[in-house]
Design a protein around this nucleic acid. Structure first.
Lengths: 202, 202
DNA sequence: CAGGGATGCGTACGGTGTACACCATGTCCG
DNA sequence: CGGACATGGTGTACACCGTACGCATCCCTG
């Protein structure tokens, strides 16, 4: 019940409005009463994260291993991008909770089927996961970047600031018009294909 | 002076011991006096981040473009891993500060020289950067994961918890013995080579 | 019925960022 | 010289936060 209400708060008011007092208030209870159900706020957050991760089951299908990896990670990205608070919370939890690792299982399996040996598969999985998380964490700011880039044309101040960086300045419009989702799949495919290629060579 | 002292606090006591009151105290001043020099704590953190980023100049050299990209990003990883607070702070800043983008300039330049067209280079740069940040954010927890993985042999509870995930369970020892730095360069090279390969095909 | 554990809650402590009003000092201009 | 004004410092106060501690109340069992 507590975590349900907490989830509701997070979803409606955002993660930084989540406080013990807020949850208790909406529950018509006193702040301290929550501690009968939850050891600490950190644990509460962990429970929230686990709840979301629990139904992070990659889509099935009888596609090629490569396609399965791409689909699984794209699915994960999409799901996690709908809960922007999730990733920071997960990263703040130590030790990392065992979170029904469907994704890991699925991707590892596909990588092995694609011909990677076990240690290469593990390495590749971690790399791909890191890429996905990195993308998610940066993606929120892309809009701000875009504005910044767009204003480079008009703002003299920014123009002179970028004076020592000719390549960047010239490429700035491209950066502004970059489609976030396209860029995600491009990077994902590049990395995966890189791994598959080195596996092939061995 | 304020930011210098703040930097000192962060370096010696960690980022979460940084508070206006703490800095003021060490400066022998009152908390509110800081606000004459800094608009808010957020701005203070931004200034700290910028200070570190300012001397994030990738190493030069007359190597191949590929080697230059790798060296630049490895340099960035190494530098940022020495300041674990940096990346979270950067990601919390909106809008992202213009932070003397030596790295961007350097990598973009190398990518263009490697034969990518401008929009591909921009896309690749963002992907690579996202990978680096993702790696850094996850890397701190690797030790905890390693412990967790190591305890899988002994702990029955974890063993039964992993029962529905045979592939993962079998691969767990590999995960535990993964060298973080090797994994970083492997993923980096895979992604970069993937981008270079698709550029070649075009 | 007596006792005891589970559960809820009120109070309080120590911490945070910062709005606001006030004061000290120096600098410049009429 | 006298007063305006900018610059920096301070003390108080507010609105929060997480949570340690101890007391009150309930139900369940012996």
């Amino acid at each position: 019940m507590v975590i349900d209400q907490a989830m509701r708060v997070v979803e409606t008011e955002g993660i930084d409005k989540l406080s013990m007092r807020r949850v208790a208030e909406q529950l018509g209870a006193s702040p301290m009463s929550l501690y009968r159900h939850v050891a600490s706020k950190k644990e509460l957050l962990g429970a929230l994260a686990e709840e979301v991760m629990a139904d992070l089951r990659p889509p099935g299908g009888d596609r090629s291993p490569r396609a399965r990896v791409l689909a699984a990670l794209e699915h994960a990205r999409e799901a996690m991008s709908r809960h922007p608070w999730l990733l920071p919370v997960l990263l703040a939890q130590d030790p990392p909770p065992v979170r029904r690792p469907w994704l890991t299982e699925h991707v590892l399996d596909a990588l092995l089927e694609a011909g990677l040996d076990e240690s290469a598969a593990v390495c590749a999985y971690r790399s791909l996961w890191q890429y996905v998380t990195g993308h998610l964490l940066n993606a929120g700011r892309e809009d701000a970047w875009r504005e910044r880039a767009a204003s480079a044309h008009t703002s003299d101040e920014l123009a002179t600031e970028l004076e020592p960086f000719p390549v960047l300045r010239h490429a700035l419009p491209r950066l502004a018009s970059l489609d976030v989702h396209e860029q995600f799949t491009a990077g994902l495919e590049a990395q995966l294909d890189g791994f598959l290629a080195t596996a092939e060579r061995a």
